[in-house]
Amino acid sequence: MTAIDDRSAAAPTRVTRGADHQSWPERIALGLFIAVPFVAILAAVPVAWGGWLGWSDVAITFVMYGITLHGITVGYHRLFTHKSFKPNRAVKIALAVSGSMAVQGPVIRWVADHRKHHKFSDKDGDPHSPWRYGNNLRGLTKGLVWAHVGWLFDPEQTPIDKFAPDLAKDRDLVRISRNFWVFVLVSILLPPLLGFALTWSWQGALTAFFWGSVVRIGLIHHVTWSINSICHAVGERPFASRDFSGNVWWLAIPSGGESWHNLHHADPTSARHGVGRFQLDSSARIIWLMEKLGWVRDVRWPTPERLAAKRAA
């Protein structure tokens, strides 16, 4: 079993297809990938009411949501950003691919942005702090919009060589990052293919595309972005952190446990974020299961002593 490893002698000159500055075509594509799923979410209730939602759609959407969500939470976040555990190569690749299918950007780019967020959390330099424009009502409203989605259109990109040089040396992750668009296509096309296979009808393929591709991508986007915005504006703060990260209980299940955000910022490398009673954390449970199966090792589980040291006075 091997941990994340350097599979190249030197870092490639370009680890993603994007440049250091976001181009106008990239912004237009980004806008479409945000707007279309959002419109689909708004249309979801009348579409379901009209009978365009079957059990195959529910099953496909649920499975695709779970796979791609945990690709972000377990893979992009707890593994690649914070190195909360060490995986074998197959797990590493599977998590990078499933995270890419959440359509939130190449893994190395995502990690660079998130590491920068932790370095400057809720201070100047944070890519997506809701406190960017001040703490009055007008400033916080503007800041919440920025933290939720506005920051994605910032033309200035986080330098990978500064915030993710370790990942830029991993040939597997470079290849997956550079071929991000392939996994986006897989993420979009797989649900309608499954819908057709389960129903043997074009209507089944179409409804699976609507729910399992478009709505599912929109939901994952806004749940993830809510961690950046809502969880840095409200919530309980039982642990001492140098920012405004809080616990938002009603986001715990859809976010895979990421909304227990206060402990995460108090102890970023912890493999479990929900440490209190009834604090559901499906991402931590998946890591626990992979550890039991021998697929990962050196998991950084929180200990009572460490939790006590992190608690707010």
Results as ranks from 00 to 15, higher is better:
A90E: 14
G134I: 03
V74H: 13
A19M: 12
S84A: 14
W211S: 01
L251E: 06
W202L: 09
W24C: 03
A43V: 07
I28L: 14
V63S: 12
N247T: 07
V145I: 13
L137I: 08
I188K: 01
L280I: 08
W131T: 06
T68E: 10
V107K: 15
A205M: 07
W301D: 07
H114A: 05
G71S: 13
G31C: 06
A309F: 00
L293G: 09
V36M: 14
R242E: 15
A19I: 04
V39C: 11
L193P: 01
R132L: 12
V296A: 09
A233K: 00
V275W: 11
V275L: 05
I160R: 08
A252C: 05
H148M: 10
M1P: 02
P155K: 15
K162N: 08
W131S: 08
P268C: 10
A266H: 06
H82M: 10
S226Y: 10
K83L: 09
A284W: 02
V91K: 03
G99F: 00
L206C: 01
Q104Y: 12
A147G: 09
G139A: 10
F163K: 10
D154I: 02
R300C: 04
Q104K: 11
R285M: 12
K86D: 11
V275D: 08
F196A: 12
F278Y: 13
R216W: 09
S84K: 05
W250P: 03
V184D: 08
I34Q: 09
H128T: 04
M1V: 04
G218F: 00
K119H: 13
A43R: 05
F163R: 11
P130W: 14
P191S: 07
N88W: 03
P238D: 12
W225V: 00
N179T: 05
A43H: 11
I93A: 15
G212V: 04
A10G: 01
S283V: 01
R109Y: 15
K119Y: 09
T2Q: 10
A9E: 14
P25A: 11
L69M: 15
N135D: 13
I286L: 15
A3T: 07
V15F: 02
V91N: 12
W301H: 12
H82V: 03
D122F: 03
A208G: 04
D122Y: 02
G276S: 12
A208L: 06
D170G: 03
A312I: 03
I286T: 06
L167S: 05
I286H: 00
Q104A: 05
N136A: 08
I176M: 12
L32H: 04
F163G: 14
A94D: 14
N228W: 04
D172I: 01
E26S: 10
P25T: 08
V111M: 11
W110G: 04
H232S: 08
H70F: 10
Q157W: 10
G54L: 05
P268H: 10
R175F: 08
N88Y: 02
R89C: 09
S229G: 05
V215I: 05
V182P: 02
A313L: 06
A271I: 04
H82W: 12
H232I: 02
V111W: 13
W200S: 11
A10E: 15
H21C: 07
Q104H: 14
A48R: 09
G246T: 05
R285Y: 12
S129Q: 07
K92D: 15
G99V: 04
S241W: 00
G31W: 06
D6M: 06
G195M: 07
L251C: 07
T16H: 13
I108F: 13
G66Y: 11
V214M: 08
A48V: 02
V186G: 00
L289H: 06
